[in-house]
């Protein structure tokens, strides 16, 4: 049962930032070694939404990225493909074509990404366009201005309408936490997004710093934990922006494991929004297999 805004405002807990930082620091002392490291690194690859979201994106760029998405590093057999590619709506059709006959999903940003400063009607059209072109997943942005004006009901209704426009596509709701400024706001926005219909909540557009800090992701994971405890419904999580090393990615997975449990450790429920993470993970995998530290010159950069 979805909660109303007034109920959400009553239930949303306060967040103490220093306490969150301590918890995160403790998670970051976890040591992932041996078999669990190999397994973890492959999980990371399989959870990546390989992303290009630039004004200068071209068909060529998108085509190359799509090939990389299911040929991460052919020198090592049995590597998983990434979970999805993430592109602008105008590139969805192309990506869909390039990735037919693969497991890789097509995610599209929408709702006047990244600022979200457009009327709702435009956002709905934006979303429907992407879905009609074959997007499996929609990454929308919330209206941060409205949120900071205190218009929580507007933010809630907008998400609900976009969810409706998504049809079968899964909806990821980007909070753009770097603009929300406090963890209290991050938590409130998470709860609003979840109750308004998000399938995933996502930290950032990648255009604003700070992006997916562990502190922010932890706060959002706690919202998911509470929702699951209250309703039994799982919500997915996608930190995006700033996660570029294998070590940080593994710490994120540890965090998911400790906060939500092993059930969330699949790309159905957890994703990394990243462009350069895959190659750092590949370097670690190569090191694990060969025993030598790897060089970036041996890994493709599409």
């Amino acid at each position: 049962m979805a909660k109303t805004i007034s109920q959400i405002l009553l239930d949303t807990p306060k967040v103490d930032k220093v306490g969150v930082e301590e918890r995160v620091a403790r998670i970051q002392t976890r040591s992932v070694k041996g078999p669990s490291k190999s397994q973890g690194l492959k999980m990371v690859l399989n959870m990546i939404d390989l992303t290009t979201l630039e004004g200068k994106d071209t068909q060529g760029k998108v085509r190359q990225m799509c090939y990389k998405a299911h040929h991460l590093h052919d020198a090592i057999p049995n590597l998983p493909a990434v979970a999805a590619v993430c592109v602008y709506p105008s590139m969805v059709k192309l990506a869909k074509k390039e990735l037919r006959n693969t497991q890789v999903k097509i995610a599209s940003v929408s709702t006047a990404f990244p600022s979200g400063q457009a009327p709702l009607e435009v956002k709905i059209i934006d979303t429907k366009f992407a879905v009609d072109n074959g997007a499996d997943e929609i990454d929308m942005v919330i209206s941060r201005g409205r949120f900071l004006q205190g218009e929580f009901q507007y933010v809630y209704d907008e998400i609900a309408q976009i969810k409706e426009a998504c049809g079968k596509a899964r909806l990821k709701v980007i909070l753009e936490t770097g603009e929300l400024a406090t963890l209290d706001n991050v938590r409130l926005a998470s709860d609003i997004a979840i109750h308004a219909g998000a399938d995933f909540i996502k930290t950032s557009t990648g255009k604003i710093q700070p992006a997916a800090t562990m502190q922010v992701t932890y706060t959002m994971l706690m919202a998911i934990q509470d929702h699951f405890a209250e309703t039994g419904n799982m919500i997915g999580m996608k930190p995006a922006g700033g996660i570029s090393t294998a070590k940080l990615a593994l710490h994120n997975l540890i965090m998911v494991k400790e906060v939500l449990g092993d059930d969330w450790l699949t790309n159905e429920w957890f994703r990394f929004g990243a462009s350069s993470l895959a190659n750092d993970v590949l370097m670690q995998i190569i090191k694990n297999e060969s025993g030598y530290y790897a060089s970036p010159d041996y890994i493709s950069i599409d």
Binding site: D16, V18, Q209
Partner: peptide, 13 residues
């Protein structure tokens, strides 16, 4: 008592 720092300024990433 904890002292909250503003934004993500203290994050290690």
């Amino acid at each position: 008592h904890p002292i909250e720092q503003i934004g993500g300024a203290t994050s290690s990433y």
